[in-house]
Design a protein around this nucleic acid. Sequence first.
DNA 1: AGATTTCTGATTTACGTACCTCAAAAACTG
DNA 2: CAGTTTTTGAGGTACGTAAATCAGAAATCT
Lengths: 340, 340
Amino acid sequence: MRPTVHDIASEAGVSLATVDRVLNGRPGVRRQTIAKVEEAIKRLGYVRDVAAANLAKRRIYPLAFIVPGGPNSFMRNLEAEIRAAEARSLIDRTSIRIERVTPFDPSALEQTLSTVDPETVCGVALVATDTPGVRAAVERLIAAGVGVVTLVSDLPGSQRTHFSGIDNIAAGRTAGRLIGRFCSDHGGKVLVVAGSMTLSDHMHRAQGFAEVLESEFGHLKIVGPKETNDDAARVEQEVEHALAGDKDIVAIYNLGAGNRGLIEALGKHRGRRLSVVGHELTAHSRQALGDGLFDAIINQDCGHEVRSAIRVLKARADGVDPLTAQERIRIDVFLKDNLP
Amino acid sequence: MRPTVHDIASEAGVSLATVDRVLNGRPGVRRQTIAKVEEAIKRLGYVRDVAAANLAKRRIYPLAFIVPGGPNSFMRNLEAEIRAAEARSLIDRTSIRIERVTPFDPSALEQTLSTVDPETVCGVALVATDTPGVRAAVERLIAAGVGVVTLVSDLPGSQRTHFSGIDNIAAGRTAGRLIGRFCSDHGGKVLVVAGSMTLSDHMHRAQGFAEVLESEFGHLKIVGPKETNDDAARVEQEVEHALAGDKDIVAIYNLGAGNRGLIEALGKHRGRRLSVVGHELTAHSRQALGDGLFDAIINQDCGHEVRSAIRVLKARADGVDPLTAQERIRIDVFLKDNLP
DNA sequence: AGATTTCTGATTTACGTACCTCAAAAACTG
DNA sequence: CAGTTTTTGAGGTACGTAAATCAGAAATCT
């Protein structure tokens, strides 16, 4: 049988009240007594029954999710996943608030972060924009004892509790290798389309992509990255312009959003032999993969990211270690055949 | 506030005892009263607090995992993941027993399945071999109210609760497309190496692979599948023999285990330009990918499979629906760059 | 030593559910 | 209609933990 607080009390030769004081870090216990109790805990291998504790504490986990608004399909998917988690909040004792902020506007994010009340919120998950103001707001929350998980886009080197997203350098490298291998026998140019190089994830993808192409696939030369601010119309325009003007383009890597524009442009060049890699599985990109317009999609599972963020924030609030293997977000590679 | 049994009692105008009888399907309640209570439950949106219920019931989930023995790295990884889950069993109220059975021996599996006591075990997870005897044993367990999850290898069309594994036809197709694209400009032969075509997962992979190659990459011809019973030495021998005897081989797909043998053989032909795709990320295959001997690895995350199997079995025991999105096992595609 | 402060023990209530008993009410029998 | 059976109510105890109170013991200080 699993040992209980009663068992440690008698094992340590102290009362239940003292065990409780030690377990919950309440004052009024001598060092030696604390040591006695801790030793008994270790000896019996006691593990606090979190479920029972939560019951007794009437604990709920108030969480805040901050996501960019706007039409970006990926972000809308992400929000849908958060809402799905919200629907389960009764079951897993969470209370989730979703805040939408203006996209590409760090000050709006800062503003929203500063309204988070550390007294009533135990954890925050946000799609981070890496600016000094945002970093400062995050550090403030951490200092106030709030857990902070960065979603999709990280704040490297900050004190955030956890990053729930992918290594974007590795993602860019993966795209580079796919395109390199798909064009292994014929040289040419590769058009790279990005949202904004001020977004760290886009920058990292471009960097990883370039690394691999330069070091291993010298027969391919990069054109771009063309910045489009993730606007589908601008993506279409850039791609259209490049394809029309440069017959040497043999591949396209869209490392940002706006796949819809890319698909539009590709539709007009169906005869042309192109290797195309994009990011994030959405209704559109999935369709394009099925139609053969895209050759591969690099994806991060935003459902996994949301669930993982919640688990990590709850674990932190309980003072428990999360299960690292479970919380690692994969860099998914999807071809036409292994779509989920 | 979340409604409790007390709330439904007063809402339905009945006593706590009656609510309890309805909730737990105990006898001695009139139809109309049951309806009244159920209506109140619906009206208030009551959801049973599983944690509190488990506490009151002193519930533990006794589970049995049945895995093939033998040196197969993937199966040993799988077992390690089960042991890792076992280490957390105190926390999540499970009690996991691991049974190793002789590999490639359906009767041993049947035998072990028949020793499972439906009175003391609430769920079984097994790496299934598809034979009539195994199917019968599984149906027997299901009939006795035990949850059964097939791990890695399924029993299609059976009554098993859930399959925790990948679609192997899709996995084979994925491998086919990778190799097809990697060799898009030059034709040749593709050597296919399998463990045993009597294993349904191997058969499915071979089938999916052939489908894609025939329909979309006609310039590549399949040699094989060569069966090796997943024995590394035999894999080495088959590959060595084929490479030495046939200069037209431009790619190899090992859809079974025994990657170690493949790596050995490849080591002797480092100069030769080959596209190689294998299955399952193990220490060896990871190394081979890093060294450039392999070009891609198709993987199923066995840690995910084990955790998912446990969640599904617990959910079934609680009479709750599992979270389908979370329980889908991905077909991972790993290149050198996106290794976890 | 006595006074004071700091610890500790004993006990209680509560969380939401399960499960038990016993009595009472209601619904059926003949 | 009494007698029987079925249904319902009221109440309690338990699960493992949290949190509180209050009295008493032990340590520290003067």
